[in-house]
Amino acid sequence: MNLTPDQIVMFDAWGVPINATIFYTWIVMGLLTVASMLITRNLRADVPPDRWRTTLEVIVQGIQGQIDEIAQGPSRHLLYFSGTLFLFVALSNLLLVIPGFRPPTSSLSTTTALAISVLIAVPLFGVSSRGLGGYLKTYLQPSPIMLPFNIISEFSRGISLAIRLYGNIMSGAVIAAILLGVAPFFFPVVMDVLGLLTGMIQAYIFAILATVYISSATATPSHPLSEKDNS
């Protein structure tokens, strides 16, 4: 039994083996992109939105609302990044219910890649918001003694993000697979339902944590995030 889809080679493309993680990632990307293109192809301001467009607007505005509650002021770039994280992870986890589908998020490589993306995005957003000097100063706060701890904290964030998402999704998939062998009629269904709930929660947590990390890096000194949270 393969615990990670990385070991499953789906096909070779120009001599490069394409494993299940990448293959199913492309499927998720294709679904998201095609659905978005189909729904948003004929948008006009003077035409009332149909139900699909309304659904997308609710999703996008819901994500934007969550980000606005955390970050200082509206930031479209943060929406693009965190929203894509949420949608990708959520759809991957939802597709868990399709028999034969291996969610990419059950691969430690995928969750590591997403965590690395967050780790890279945090300094990028911080530098673009505060400037290079302003961002590097945050590692010396509240005192230069904290510099190594701040660096360790940054990396531990990424590792915890990756391990949390991977562990939850992979464990759900593995437990469902084990129960399917032991009691194939009832428990796998319950576990799949539970896996859907867990997957949505993990997608939400992953995106929220990424937003919090990026927001804390972009928060201005006069309005640190801690003050906003305490208020």
Partner: peptide, 15 residues
């Protein structure tokens, strides 16, 4: 990220 920015967020938010 680029695809969704191009085909989802920007059209929806602009709309």
């Amino acid at each position: 990220v680029w695809l969704l920015k191009r085909f989802l967020y920007r059209p929806i938010l602009d709309g």
